[in-house]
Design a protein around this nucleic acid. Structure first.
Length: 826
RNA sequence: GGAGGAUUAGCUCAGUUGGUUGGAGCACCUGCCUUACAAGCAGGGGGCCAUAGGUUCGAGUCCUAUAUCCUCCACCA
């Protein structure tokens, strides 16, 4: 082995080796199945650190389960990401001087598919760099034939069941992407603006009602002024008419409970471009006319402001109405404005025919399942379930049609005012709906569409429901919820038994990583610099479940050091291969300790508690294995145990650091570590006494080292000790590096410390310079004894605390009394 | 407005169903190039666990307030 760990050398070629040997392939029917389906990344771009985290967690589970003897299916795939991808493709076409709309749908689709292939290749390369053990023979795409069949089947069924309908309602419109969006694709951001107060004049009068608005550009659509029926200020004007400031039309003053008396002037104007306005106008049977078009430009209804953008129109309208003396005041006002998640355009509320999924029945079914402890999806961590439930309870219908090309075309056909929902064209005179479905509509079917739905396939039979879904909390609403209700509806079952929810990656200062802040980190750069193993171990073990992760390069460096440590420990083992000998106390100590680690690590692996696994492995490897066992092995070497511990460590690390563990293992065994078994707890290895002896010895050695350093005792000063057990003596000589200064049976020995209840290995020592001051230690010990005595004489404690805990306290007290005795005897 | 978090060493974070003397990494101090590793070894210092009450024999952990910060949801014009 090389003297230093070189991640590039180690990681080079491994992934191809695994692929060539089909080590990621599923389908061994002799084993129990375990299934994971990757959350499909968008084909719009490269993977970021969040993906690296998400997929590393899955890979850890997949590799762990394989070592545990499962037939693991980890199914890869990607998402067509409708609106997002279309925006990118259009942008690229424009760069090439091509107008995307003018080339026609079919030609455009050709471009789109080649774009998709390009990014799919980048993503696959990134997966390979991360070392993800995906079964590529099962790879899927949300827009492939099978997925399209699933989408059509679900759409048509839901339509026939009355869950999908076409309706003309106010929807969120993205004027840049020129498509409808669902509610959750709208991001509300606090935005600086103004509150404008306008006079709505009564005809032939100088009386007016003052109305506040943040959006003067919608005023051409004003069709009513609403006040609260309980508002005394306006009682006698309800039912009268006022003049709309812009179009100078007579519009009624009406009432609605919705109006907050204390807000603004207590009077609100109703236009077409707000959902509440729409509802109120509709309720009152008042005409609704839009004055903004799908490009976000004012239309002819806005008279001389036609052709202006919303922003321009706002300024001009305020200018004009101000000249007319219709503005009473303008205040600074910060409020929530909706932006498109994809294009960051300010959302416009438009009234148009769109397709919707009616949510009440589907959400109720989901809530019913989650209230059943036997049937429910288990959330790790559980608090995210509450978030989902709260959202499901107040959910509104889901707008699923999108006015783009990149997606599943809606299987609806029109002829005059007739609608037919089916896959095949009903005839020549019929035309198909131009729209496609929300990308999340197909993602929602992912756990079963990837396994063959709507066909009844062996894969569905064997691998569904998925054993675990791993995803970030940011897409619980977008994805987790929708997978759940679609699966409950169509598979009559939950889509996955468990869902492991992780947080977001933040930068060193705790800020969310984003393109606009420019604080994003490319995982491929990290891999180049420190290796995939370092990155993976860092992202998966540095945070508690469900918490956000702060990216810190220093921590990746220290992971690299950890791997280098493992590397060097392996080199030591390699250099000491052929030293077969009897099991010594040391060997029994490490075997006992390791055996217990296996037990607790396995338990934590099964709980997906990787932070704990990480620190347990770290601690065991660095402190127990390297600092003590390897050092002790220099006194007495048993290469069989040395190898056993090393190999076991490698197997337990393998899910986290697949490359370096494979590399080291191959170096010894010439066989892939992936084909091995995870270490098992062995109740035969019950070397309690040997364990206790070495632990005591460690304590003693640390104490002497401390004394040496504290009193600057070098070899010139003397520490002398005797011990009837020659083996223990050898250990002391080696670890305390005082070979030349030990004596046997010195009668003048005046300082004694018993380090074990085994009389045969009692150690006597003294330091001939009389500089050691034990008074502090004695005092502390006395205090501790006091505390313990008091505790044990507390009746409440003795009676109510668990017996084993009280017993432990008694034992500790006894030990302390013995210690005190020894110290004072000097 | 509603909901979910967070607050523990200088920094970043752990802390299991409450068990009595609260951990790790980094940073810091001291001494070491000891034949696996100086990207290392050995040793050490450093905490009123945000605040105030409560429950309990016992609270970092459970309950109730308060403060500060973060995130999500929601149609206040």
């Amino acid at each position: 082995m090389e003297k230093k760990y070189d991640h590039r050398l180690v990681e080079y070629g491994k992934y191809d080796y695994w692929l060539k040997n089909d080590l990621f392939k599923s389908g061994d029917l002799n084993k129990k199945p375990f299934s994971i389906v990757i959350p499909p990344p968008n084909v719009t771009g490269k993977l970021h650190l969040g993906h690296a985290w998400d997929t590393s967690l899955q890979d850890i589970i997949a590799r762990y389960k394989r070592l545990k003897g499962y037939d693991v299916l980890w199914l890869p795939g990607m998402d067509h990401a409708g609106v997002a991808t279309q925006a990118k493709i259009d942008a690229r076409l424009k760069e090439q001087g091509i107008n995307p709309k003018s080339i026609g749908r079919d030609k455009w689709m050709e471009y789109a598919w080649s774009y998709k292939e390009e990014y799919a290749n980048i993503i696959r390369k990134q997966w390979s760099n991360l070392g993800l053990s995906l079964d590529y023979s099962k790879e899927r795409f949300t827009l492939d034939e099978g997925s399209s069949n699933a989408v059509n089947k679900v759409f048509i069924d839901l339509y026939n069941k009355g869950y999908i309908y076409r309706g003309t309602k106010p929807i969120n419109w993205d004027p840049i992407a020129k498509t409808a969006l669902s509610n959750i694709e709208v991001i509300y951001k606090k935005t600086k603006g103004n509150m404008y107060y306008f006079k709505y004049m009564f005809p032939n009068s100088d009386q007016y009602i003052e109305v506040a608005t943040t959006r003067p550009e919608t005023m051409a659509s004003d069709k009513a002024v609403v006040v609260n029926p309980k508002d005394d200020r306006y009682k006698n004007i309800v039912g009268k008419s006022v003049i709309s400031p812009l179009r100078k039309e007579l519009i009624p003053v009406i009432t609605d409970e919705y109006i907050d008396i204390s807000f603004g002037t207590g009077a609100m104007k109703c236009s077409a471009h707000a959902i509440d306005d729409f509802d109120i106008l509709k309720k009152n049977n008042i005409e609704i006319v839009e004055s903004i078009d799908t490009n976000g430009i004012l239309n002819d209804y806005a008279l001389e402001f036609s052709g202006l953008t919303r922003e321009e129109a706002r300024i001009k309208i305020v200018e004009k109405l101000n000249k007319e003396g219709l503005i009473t005041k303008i205040e600074d006002y910060n409020h929530e404005v909706g932006y498109s998640e994809r294009t960051d355009a300010v959302i416009e509320i438009m009234i148009m025919p769109q397709w919707f999924v009616k949510m009440d029945g589907l959400s109720k079914a989901l809530l019913d399942v989650q209230s059943d402890k036997e049937k429910k999806v288990k959330f790790v961590t559980s608090r995210f379930e509450k978030i989902l439930i709260n959202w499901m309870i107040s959910i509104q219908d889901w707008c699923i049609s999108r006015q783009v090309w990149w997606g599943h075309r809606i299987p609806a056909w029109y002829k005059d005012d007739q609608v037919k929902v089916q896959i095949e064209s009903p005839g020549l005179e019929w035309t198909q709906d131009e729209d496609v479905l929300d990308t999340w509509f197909s993602s929602a079917l992912w756990p079963f569409s990837t396994l063959g739905f709507p066909n009844k396939t062996n894969d569905l039979e064997r691998y569904f429901p998925i054993d675990i879904m791993v995803t970030g909390y940011d897409i619980i609403f977008f994805w987790v919820a929708r997978m759940m209700f679609q699966s409950i509806e169509f598979m009559n079952n939950i889509p996955f038994k468990e869902v492991l929810i992780h947080g977001l990656v933040r930068d060193k200062n705790g800020k969310k990583m984003s393109k606009s802040l420019g604080n994003g980190i490319d995982p491929m750069d990290v891999i180049e610099k420190y290796g995939a193993d370092s990155l993976r171990y860092f992202i998966t073990t540095n945070t508690a479940q469900g918490m956000d992760l702060r990216y810190d390069e220093e921590k990746i460096k220290s992971t690299w050091n950890f791997i280098n440590k493992i590397w060097n420990a392996s080199r030591y083992v390699e250099m000491n291969l052929n030293n077969e000998s009897e099991l010594s106390v040391i060997d029994k100590w490490i075997l006992f300790k390791f055996n217990n680690k296996v037990k607790s690590i396995t338990k934590n692996m099964d709980k997906y508690d990787f932070q704990n696994v990480g620190s347990e492995l770290y601690e065991f490897i660095w402190n127990d294995f390297c600092d003590w066992y390897i050092e002790l092995s220099k006194v007495h070497l048993n290469s069989k145990v040395l190898k056993y511990i090393l190999f076991s460590i490698l197997k337990m690390l393998h899910p986290f650091m697949p490359f370096v563990t494979e590399d080291i293992y191959m170096n010894f065994e010439n066989k892939s570590i992936m084909l091995e078994e995870y270490p098992k707890y062995d109740k035969e290895l019950n070397y309690k006494n040997e364990y206790k002896l070495i632990e005591d010895l460690k304590e003693y050695i640390i104490k002497v080292r401390n004394i040496k350093l504290e009193y600057s005792i070098t070899k010139d000063a003397l520490i002398e000790y005797t011990c009837k057990d020659e083996f223990v003596l050898k250990i002391l000589n080696k670890l305390l590096k005082l070979d030349d200064y030990f004596k046997y049976n010195d009668e003048n020995m005046n300082k004694i410390s018993i380090i074990s209840d085994n009389k045969d290995i009692t150690i006597n020592y003294y330091i001939n310079e009389n500089v050691i001051d034990d008074t502090k230690e004695i005092e502390e010990l006395k205090l501790s004894i006091e505390r313990r005595k008091k505790l044990l004489s507390n009746e409440g404690y003795v009676n109510k605390a668990p017996k084993n805990i009280v017993e432990e306290e008694r034992l500790k007290l006894e030990e302390e009394l013995i210690k005190l005795n020894n110290l004072e005897a000097k």
